[in-house]
Design a protein around this nucleic acid. Structure first.
Lengths: 343, 343
DNA sequence: CATATTTATGAAAACATTTGCAAAACTATT
DNA sequence: AATAGTTTTGCAAATGTTTTCATAAATATG
């Protein structure tokens, strides 16, 4: 069936097989309603016989959309980004778009290089993760006049439409929750903030919210811990050896909080009666861990889906007023890992 | 700098700006050594001034490689696939390839449709996940004579080179481990196997290994549980209410095992003294959970990396004998969640 | 049945590149 | 300074499509 010597079938091969011109075959795909039903059937069979597959590259040089969207993330290794990407991909696939995916590992230089590559492929739009990017990146996008959305974080005055959660709000919510339970001796654990505006914003707002309530976090209770359960477990285990312990631990994300829970368990301490542990993110599994984790939900799936919708809209209705930002509000999720300070 | 009226700069714009012909600009990119250093510099500056970005679509219709690889996975929502994809992407990025990513959610029909789309984009190669696919999928790949590797699973006689772990071996290893600890009353929990050859192979080999040792799993101890911590926790909590309990539980993957651990904790049972729990996968976090999970390591990162290398080799040295399969052997990882049966 | 409309198709130009070939510009050699 | 050899460059054809415009075929109108 799909033999046809060796060269790949092109539109002309099909045209000959159907005894029509190449233009007619082109119309068969792009404006089938213009064809006589009989011709349509003839081409249909010719396409089948020759095993022809349209060549989007050839279409793209006519200024026709490539049908691809560039997705730039820090890493897939954080389950939360994988979730966002999955939702984004599903969302744009409905409109026939395929994603080009690349990760920069928090290296801004690489982000620029990847973006260039995306543009060489003539993507119809790009999504970046987070609000902060190299100025060169923004300029490149501007110069190519290509739709862009920033996903994951939300901020009112972002350079491009931002679709995501307000990190400051997330940080504030969790800090206020812990304060409301009466805690004053509070430790904090955040990932290294280099090149990561999300983590940075969260940490700063947590600290300032605490300070506003008159609570300062002593230096030895301020951890900078890489994003991994084992690192967090190690640091928390260490922290809990000392006799002067905090009554609460605020973690920058649920992975760190999970490690903290394990660390407390390893030390034989009860959560929350000995120590309250909270995270940010509401990752998969956070609700099932023992004890279930109190956290702030960042609606990853919704963010991915909405970012996809927004970008597709931007692509399809190019030129019009760009789609606006959208705040997918974070929400405090109270579970068992937090409790009132025990006197 | 990158102004230039409104139309995007093409190779002719650059040529004019540098006062050379388009061919020379083309050579500047593809065979720079053929150019006089002075010309090179002139073009260099013209490229910069015009903000020109090469158009890979236009190159691709000359039979030049597109520089893209299609990656087809079931879903990114399983952290383990995200990990494989991340490693794959990093690996091929070294050689300048960008990935087109799509997930089919275990729907074979969608897999075919996605593959077609990849081919329209003229990907230089494709990776599929797992060994089993619709015959139409294989035929399509054959007819387009495009390099393909199957990743994640390994089997000697696979239709295309397979790079991954031998699932039968993984299942056998974990079953033998549990048997070697003296367990006879064994429960099993596996994900639904529809359209998922990996899960199926694992389950069947575990069961047959047990049977060979004279152990049969009674029907009420045979769980088909969706891939989620909460579903597993629920089922295990239920299982452990009955007074006649198994002494060991073999889970088809670490997510289910994690839920099982939580379920046991919720019931106040000790692992491993009351019940042994084991998984398959060695996901991130499996080593840190309390108690640390005994499992079989499926080397996701290595698989992704090797699959990337193999495919790139297949693309670059097209025509030659295709790169062979590679077995990334699974390996039993003994931790605290398994112990000898207590009499 | 001839003419006017409408519908369906083909020819050729356009798209942004690469590349084979030939001409032009240099260098080296005498 | 003329010639031969080499390096550098430009022209034009080719790539696989889409699209505009013109023409041919089919249908409707009188």
């Amino acid at each position: 069936m799909t033999d046809k010597k060796h060269k790949k079938a092109d539109i002309i091969t099909v045209a000959q097989a159907a005894r029509v011109s190449a233009s007619t075959v082109s119309r068969y795909f792009n404006h089938p309603e213009l064809l006589k039903p009989a011709t349509r059937k003839r081409i249909d069979s010719a396409v089948r016989r020759t095993g022809y597959i349209r060549n989007r590259a050839a279409q793209t040089i006519h200024g026709i959309r490539s049908g691809t969207i560039g997705v730039l993330i820090p890493t897939l290794d954080h389950a939360i980004f994988a979730e966002v990407v999955q939702a984004f991909s599903d969302s744009v696939a409905e409109d026939g778009f395929t994603i080009l995916l690349a990760s920069h590992g928090y290296d801004l230089q690489r982000e620029y290089a990847i973006l260039r590559k995306f543009l060489e492929h003539r993507v119809d739009g790009v999504v970046l993760t987070g609000l902060d990017h190299d100025e060169a990146v923004f300029q490149l996008i501007d110069s190519q006049k290509i739709p862009c959305v920033l996903m994951w974080n939300y901020a009112a005055g972002s350079r491009y439409p931002s679709i995501g959660a307000d990190n400051e709000m997330a940080g504030r919510l969790i800090a206020e929750h812990v304060l409301s339970l009466g805690h004053r001796d509070i430790a904090c654990m955040f990932p290294p903030t280099g090149g990561n505006d999300r983590a940075m914003a969260r940490r700063d707002i947590v600290l300032s919210t605490l300070k506003k309530a008159g609570v300062t976090v002593p230096d030895p209770w301020m951890f900078e811990t890489v994003y991994s359960i084992s690192a967090s477990k190690r640091d928390v285990t260490e922290l809990l050896t000392h006799d002067h312990r905090p009554t609460a631990l605020i973690c920058g994300n649920d992975i760190l909080a999970t490690g903290a829970l394990y660390g407390a368990a390893a030390r034989g301490l009860d959560v929350p009666s000995d120590i309250t542990v909270v995270g940010i993110g509401d990752f998969k599994g956070s609700s099932d861990i023992e004890p279930a984790l109190t956290t702030v939900r960042l609606p990853a799936r919704r963010i991915g889906r909405e970012a996809g919708k927004a970008l597709v809209t931007g692509i399809i209705s190019a030129g019009e007023d760009p789609a606006g930002s959208l705040h997918c509000a974070p929400e405090i999720i109270r579970r068992q890992s937090s409790g009132p300070v025990s006197q």
